[in-house]
Simulated scan of single mutants.
Amino acid sequence: MLKLKIFNMKNFLETVNECSGVVNLLYTDGSEENINKKYGIQNELLKKHRENKGCLRLSLNIPTIKDYFRIVYFTIGDC
Rank of each mutant, 00 (worst) to 15 (best):
Lys66Tyr: 04
Ile35Thr: 08
Glu33Tyr: 01
Pro63Ile: 09
Lys3Asp: 05
Asp67Cys: 08
Glu44Gln: 06
Tyr27Ile: 00
Glu51Lys: 15
Glu32Lys: 01
Arg57Met: 04
Gln42Ser: 04
Lys3Tyr: 04
Glu18Pro: 07
Glu32Ser: 04
Asn52Tyr: 10
Phe12Arg: 13
Cys55Trp: 14
Lys3Asn: 12
Glu32Ile: 00
Cys79Ser: 14
Leu4Lys: 09
Ser59Arg: 00
Gly40Arg: 15
Lys66Phe: 08
Thr28Pro: 04
Tyr39Arg: 14
Asn43Trp: 12
Lys5Asp: 04
Tyr73Phe: 13
Lys5Tyr: 01
Ser20Met: 12
Phe69Gly: 09
Phe69Thr: 13
Leu4Gly: 07
Gly21His: 08
Arg57Thr: 06
Cys79His: 14
His49Ile: 02
Leu45Asn: 03
Gly54Ser: 05
Gly54Pro: 01
Ile76Thr: 09
Ser59Pro: 00
Leu46Cys: 12
Gly54Cys: 03
Leu4His: 02
Ile76Ala: 12
Asn24Asp: 07
Lys47Leu: 09
Lys37Leu: 09
Lys5Cys: 02
Leu25Tyr: 01
Thr64Cys: 11
Phe69Cys: 08
Lys47Asp: 06
Gly54Leu: 07
Arg57Tyr: 02
Leu2Phe: 05
Asn61His: 08
Asn61Met: 04
Asp78His: 08
Ile65Leu: 14
Glu18Cys: 08
Leu46Asn: 15
Asn8Met: 07
Ser20Thr: 13
Asn43Ala: 10
Gln42Pro: 04
Gly30Ile: 03
Leu13His: 03
Ser31Arg: 08
Leu45Met: 07
Lys66Arg: 13
Glu14Leu: 14
Leu58His: 00
His49Asn: 08
Lys66Thr: 15
Asp29Ile: 00
Leu45Ala: 02
Gly54Ile: 02
Thr28Glu: 13
Arg57Cys: 03
Thr28Gly: 05
Ser20Val: 10
Ile65Asn: 12
Glu44Met: 05
Glu32Gly: 00
Leu2Tyr: 09
Gly77Ile: 04
Thr64Tyr: 11
Ile41Tyr: 01
Leu4Arg: 06
Pro63Asn: 10
Val22Phe: 07
Tyr27Ala: 00
Thr15Glu: 14
Val22Gln: 12
